[in-house]
């Protein structure tokens, strides 16, 4: 089982660093065989080649669409309509659509998000509420290291 964990976000925009910081912490842990962790500022096109040969992919990101501290985990499916309006970063669903179109397969994928409280310029420093949420993001990742965790996963963002 090959799993890729991708934490992404800006390290200088306060709680937007939740994704890469979560990835950093995972990298310092003992992870099961076959699990690879990477950090990215943004999701770029070449990541399609990285996810194409994986069985599972877990995206870690900050969110701004719910109450600060809210942690969600939901399945993602390819969606070519989720085209980013920006040239050099992609929506994870668009990335999956690229994967499906170019490589004929899509890994089982989920997105773990934690809603941030402040996205002001700040270097790798989280607000207390985001710091607490980061631990819950990692709890989700731990669950997703098991088949039961994936089976229990709903599509709507709730455990």
């Amino acid at each position: 089982m090959k799993t890729l964990i991708i934490g992404y976000g800006s390290p200088i925009r306060g709680d937007d660093a939740l994704g890469p910081l979560a990835a950093d912490r995972l990298e310092n842990r003992s992870l099961p065989t076959g699990v690879e962790v990477i950090s990215r500022h943004i999701l770029t096109a070449e990541l399609v080649a990285d996810i194409a040969d994986k069985d599972r992919v877990i995206f870690l990101d900050a969110a701004a669409d719910s109450a600060p501290g809210t942690v969600r985990c939901r399945r993602l499916e390819p969606d070519a309509r989720a085209v980013s309006t920006m040239a050099h970063f992609l929506d994870p669903r668009e990335l999956l659509a690229w994967c499906e179109t170019l490589y004929g397969r899509v890994p089982e994928t989920c997105l773990v998000t934690a809603a941030g409280d402040s996205f002001d310029y700040d270097n790798y420093r989280l607000t207390p509420i985001a710091e607490a949420a980061l631990d819950r993001m990692l709890d989700w990742v731990d669950r997703l290291m098991t088949q039961e965790g994936w089976t229990a996963l709903s599509a709507d963002g709730h455990p």
């Binding site: 770029t44 096109a45 070449e46 399609v48 080649a49 990285d50 070519a80 085209v83 659509a97 690229w98 179109t101 170019l102 490589y103």
Partner: peptide
């Protein structure tokens, strides 16, 4: 007329582009 159009028309070319980006990065 976008990258998905290119993928449909010439997927090998699109894969080449991604691979070249990946090598540079």
């Amino acid at each position: 007329r976008n990258i998905f159009g290119v993928m449909r028309q010439d997927p090998a070319l699109a894969r080449d582009g991604i691979r070249l980006r990946q090598i540079g990065q």
